[in-house]
Amino acid sequence: MSNTLLDTVNEKLKAKFGDGVLSAEMHYDFPVFTIRKDIIHDVIKFLKEDEELAFGFLTTMCGLHYPDNKGHELGVMYQLHNLPKNLRIRLKTFFSISDPHIPTVTDLYPTANWMERQEYDFFGIIFKGHPNLKRILNMDEMTYHPMRKEYPVEDGTREDKDDKMFGR
């Protein structure tokens, strides 16, 4: 069933957005689409308003950071859910860390408000058009975005915390 969902959504997106859909594949039970950054808002709007798909529920979203993918270091993952038909998909979009701007989806899903604030807080992703984009879980005085990979979990100055053996 999920495979047919992958094909249905893929065909619809391809017909509407052409090569804006960079990849479409199954990850376990989830169809996952990678979308070009500039059309992500349009894609989500289309998926929400399409009569057949009608992804009216934003389950969750989270930031991603791949420092080795030059030019596409940061990313956002969205998970949409069509509750009546129980269809679930995941969208991803990647962009450069030097220009971490992405349109907000708070106009489509009010619940994205705090989710986007959280990802701004931890990854420094700036959601354009967000009504109240400020830190949420960390303190306001913080000057960096701690979930980025360059910040170690343990305090780097401590020698007793060296975990060559146990750490990642």
Partner: peptide, 12 residues
């Protein structure tokens, strides 16, 4: 990443 239901609905 954890989808924490409290965090999401508390904003309402």
């Amino acid at each position: 990443h954890i989808r924490r239901p409290c965090f999401i609905y508390y904003q309402a």
